[in-house]
Amino acid sequence: MSRAYLTFKYAFIAVWASFVAGPFVWALTTSFKDANGVQGGATYLPWVDYKPTTRGWQDIFGGEGGVNVIQPFLNSLQITVLASAISLVLGSLAAYGLSRYTYRIGRMKNADIVFFFVSQRIMPPIVLVIPFFFLLQFAGLLDSIPGLVIVTVALLLPIAVWVMVDFFNNIPREIDEMAMLDGCHPFAAFVRTILPNSLPGITVAAMFCAVFGWNDFFFAFRLTFTEVQTLPQAVVALNSSIPPWWTLSAASLFGISPLVLLAVWVERYLSRGNLAGAVR
């Protein structure tokens, strides 16, 4: 590699890294401001440009604003974990079926069925939300965690199927055939031999499920009243006509922290090369 290319490469990486980190740094510094640190124009350095205060951080844990992010955090965690787990189970079963058997439903073949799954993501959320409201009302599940889990599964299942089909397609059929020749029941073959070989694929699928489940605001917001509040809702509840930038920043940073840990975890798989086949 030439020197010029190397310089260019590290410059590019540095520029992009600052672009990525910029908003986080800005949110971090803003979270320690108060009205006087915001109103006069942009300020950056605590103690130099403005007088730092921890008010924003106090406020999100049940301080004066009456906002507390702890319960919403736990709700989001439950919903995300449950919905991801259900989607992964249903999704990998369906994906395995689609990669191993030939289906025909009316005129739909395998590829069309996969497209049916994926096409659910094309639906604008607004098409779904009002009918979902009536569905959950009918089932008595409005404003409840089970209700939100069901809805979230509808959003996550397509992603799980999409990731897993590609993945299973890359696992040689010989593996399952061998297991079945040994007298394994197809489900047993799937659980004992295929799944252990699919951890990287499951990791990717789980990550996508976690990301989209955790970050859903649209549905959680409209299908709950007072009992169940998720974390994005708690953050958005701070976006008032006088937005307290400091509290908003503190709440945002708190809200995204769990998924940053997820990024570290995913990267570990990536570096080991385990994710290799997952997206082919």
Binding site: V20, S249, S252, L259
Partner: peptide, 14 residues
């Protein structure tokens, strides 16, 4: 990787 993990509505406010 981190930006895709963040909540879009929340980041938009930032």
């Amino acid at each position: 990787l981190v930006p895709m993990m963040t909540t879009p509505v929340v980041m938009a406010a930032i």
